[in-house]
Nucleic acid binder design. Structure first.
Lengths: 213, 213
DNA sequence: AATTCTTGTGAAGAAAAATTATCACTTTTC
DNA sequence: GAAAAGTGATAATTTTTCTTCACAAGAATT
């Protein structure tokens, strides 16, 4: 059952939303401010949070980055009464997955909620890919260098890679290229040029972030 | 030199922005619509794109996802005359890094541009140096599980980890914990509780991103 | 107070996996 | 036809992981 946490200081709205979400076959819970939301999230796993941006105590704008840091997979939709473009942009920059202004039609909210969850599902299925191979691949510096070479020069041939890596034994490079290919981090086009796959590209992106800490 | 591409159908604004950006020590170029922008991006590497959302031909909203798919590292700031919350949210969802409504003060634009570029610099700076231990660490699924356990429950004791991993031989867990400690991904407090180090925390965050591609 | 159980740590050798070196071969290019 | 590019398989080597034993500190039990 998909669990949704409703965070709003307006008790009426909260109860109303909980009821609507229940009717829509979700499993909702609610919190009255940011602190309570953090507590609920710590004790229970939620798929999505509906977060009011302005609340007494800890508001949604402060809570949002905390939630996203600790539970990046949990989707967050911001709700707000006073809608400004700046506010919306700020919320999205802080990691909100969507943004809805009050008053809203229940149906619009449900549409947004479902869309968010669909995206989550899409992401989750990618997780099925065995990450083990991916990480095993990345454990080797020759292979990491190969990936970053291919990031820089979009396409390279076998011997180009060998020379750029400054490795005299070309069969050794071949060995590593095969492993990279098996992990689907790179692929070959018709002319035997090696290039990063979509997955390889993403990985390389993430590598940048990791490497800079 | 930081290269910026200004994409707007209004020639006056375009020339104006190019001049301002030049004065601010950037290296600007410009395009009159989405197609032209794509062409310029293909032939030249840009660090940032200022993209008008509404243009004859191909508008910014269509161009944005194309740019972001092909050049994920290139920052994109959307510019738009008719500002609606929905429009801003849509742009951010499509991968814009920021959003500015016209008319804007030149200074505000420069502030936004510089902030975007700072973030880019942070991501880009890392070369793959002495990350070897870190990646070797992550290559093992037991260790990855350990890290994510510690992400969930902030602190854990040795035997807690052993049981949660469902491993009967505790010395095996000890072996992996030592490796994690050596790689500075986790640390122990005075009461022998294991917890993620700052580095470990960052890695775990990245892990989330990697896992979802 | 002695002992038993649980927790926690370390280390050496065995087993498994990853990496390298070597050889053998095909295809492409000049 | 010779040189270079490219691929694959196998044995040797190195690294990683697992197993087993050994030991110490603290809590709980007798």
């Amino acid at each position: 059952m998909t669990k949704i946490l409703v965070v709003d200081d307006d008790q009426d709205l909260r109860e109303n939303l909980v009821e609507v979400l229940s009717d829509a076959d979700f499993s909702p819970d609610s919190a009255g401010d940011g602190h309570e939301a953090i507590e609920k999230l710590a004790s229970d796993k939620f798929d999505l949070v509906l977060l009011d941006s302005i609340m007494p105590g800890m508001g949604g704008m402060e809570t949002l980055p905390l939630i996203k840091r600790k539970y990046p997979k949990t989707k967050v939709i911001m709700l707000t009464a006073f809608s400004t473009v700046d506010g919306a942009v700020e919320a999205m920059r802080k990691g909100a997955d969507d943004y809805i202004t009050k008053p809203f039609k229940i149906n619009d909210l449900l549409v947004t909620v479902r869309r968010c969850l669909e995206e989550a599902k899409f992401v989750a299925c990618g997780e099925m890919l065995n990450m083990d191979d991916t990480f095993k691949c990345l454990a080797n510096s020759t292979r990491r260098k190969t990936l970053s070479l291919l990031k820089e020069h979009d396409k390279l041939r076998f011997m180009d890679i060998t020379r750029k890596l400054d490795i005299n034994d070309h069969t050794k490079v071949n060995f590593h290229l095969k492993i990279l290919k098996d992990a689907a981090l790179l692929e070959q086009d018709g002319r035997k040029y090696y290039q990063l796959s979509a997955k390889g590209n993403k990985i390389i992106e993430c590598l940048g972030t990791i490497t800079s800490c």
